[in-house]
Nucleic acid binder design. Structure first.
Lengths: 114, 114
DNA sequence: CTCTCGCGCAACCAAGTGGTTGCGCATTGA
DNA sequence: TCAATGCGCAACCACTTGGTTGCGCGAGAG
């Protein structure tokens, strides 16, 4: 799981992770089952175990899954907290940008006013 | 701007668009200035006009910018609506997944209970 | 009318991504 | 103990992406 210098979760990794349909499907499967291995996940997907393992690595970098070793198995669980964090980040961006756009619109109206 | 069959904005395009730092910077510049051309945007970025034009195409596919031709210039404006839509989509996903995880946790507790 | 400026298109390139196969290692169940 | 299972690593492949340069065209300014 990569983190920024100030300890904040990097929202970019979450966006990248969520941009892929297979990774979203993996997350959905993990949420449905409450935990699974790369092998069991691959059984329900049109790709090989290794491909799933790579996707899980991306999800792990984003903090969206956590791996627990249990004997010779590695069980993955979903963690939705980075998702919520990213939503807050997006909300802050949207608000900020919208305020600027509103201010500009206001200025434009002032121009048309005599 | 690509749309899904049911007329809904594809959230995937927004995620992909937002995952790139330069595209976020372009959006921020558009929000700050209220509209700009690929040439003027490139002046404030470490890439060429053509690279900016490609980024603008990605943003346009996501519906995050709209292009208006004015003489020989093409002016781009930011549109934040797809962003809000994507946030709602993410919120729905998070809620849905969280409910599943909660239900599973409940079952686990029931197991430990005699 | 002509020169300039902004844009679009195309070719090209390096690096990244998503996928595969093959193999070796460790754990485990019979 | 030993065969089977699950995993990790590495090589390799096709395709995408982000970037460049070069060129031609159309609209405006002089």
């Amino acid at each position: 799981m990569t983190r920024t210098a100030d300890g904040e979760q990097a929202p970019e990794d979450v966006l990248v992770a969520l941009a892929d349909p297979i990774r979203r499907e993996v997350l959905a499967m993990l949420a449905r089952s409450g935990g699974a291995t790369s092998t069991s996940l691959a059984a329900g997907l049109p790709v090989t175990r290794q491909a799933v393992a790579k996707h899980l690595a991306v999800l792990d970098r984003a903090g969206l899954v956590r791996a627990h070793r249990a004997g010779r198995e590695v069980r993955y669980e979903a963690d939705l907290q980075p998702l919520k964090q990213t939503m807050r980040w997006m909300d802050a961006l949207a608000t900020q940008w919208e305020h600027r756009l509103d201010a500009i619109k206001e200025l434009a109206e002032e121009d048309t006013r005599p």
